[in-house]
Amino acid sequence: MGWSPLIYTFVDGGEVPVPPDPALVRAVLEPHDVGDPRLTVGEDGTLAFWIRASDGSEAEVTADRHGILVSRPHAGAVFGIIAELVSRLGAVILDPGGSGVVCRAEELAHLPAGMREDAVVIEMTGEAVEAALTRPRHP
């Protein structure tokens, strides 16, 4: 896949996402990181991971004070890792490719008002995330 979903945490309908908890991001992603551990934390505090799931599917994940970018996720179990991260952060997934916002029911009320109507509410599992982000788009 050539697109990159974004993970953001919103609170109380605020328009600006809150920074992700770096310790939580590391706790979820480090066990799956196959990249160079010396490159995990950048000089500016940005976290970078190259994660691989048990089925060999992969994604590059970068987290900074604004949110998390998931670059080129492969189809497969890597979406389970992404779903775990999103759930534990109480976050949502923004798909710049067209499906809008994907979230659990718990996060729906925290979205900015303009995002709630078109949000896709799912159970946050790898299979549900992959289906919501990769389903065909209709104009």
Rank of each mutant, 00 (worst) to 15 (best):
E60T: 14
A48Q: 14
V34W: 02
D55E: 09
R52Q: 15
D33R: 02
L47N: 05
H32G: 02
A59Q: 07
D55Q: 12
G42V: 01
E58H: 02
G45C: 06
A27V: 02
D36G: 04
D36T: 04
V61F: 08
T46Q: 13
A59C: 11
G45F: 01
R26P: 00
D36C: 02
R26I: 02
P31M: 11
R38L: 13
T40F: 02
T40R: 15
D36L: 04
G45I: 05
A53Y: 03
A53H: 06
R52M: 14
T46A: 15
R38M: 08
R52H: 03
L47V: 03
D55N: 10
G45R: 05
D36I: 02
R26N: 05
P37G: 07
G56S: 11
V28A: 10
A59S: 14
L47K: 03
E58K: 12
A59E: 06
V61R: 07
S57N: 07
E43F: 03
D36E: 14
P31I: 08
P31D: 10
G45E: 07
T46S: 15
A48E: 13
S57V: 08
V28E: 05
G35Q: 09
D44S: 12
G45W: 01
E30V: 00
G45M: 06
P37A: 09
G42H: 10
D44M: 08
T62S: 13
R52A: 13
V61I: 15
S54P: 07
G35C: 09
F49N: 11
W50T: 12
G45K: 06
P31L: 11
D55P: 08
E30I: 00
A48H: 12
E43L: 13
A27M: 01
A59T: 09
T62R: 14
E43P: 10
E58G: 05
R52D: 01
G56P: 09
A53N: 05
W50H: 13
A48N: 14
V28P: 05
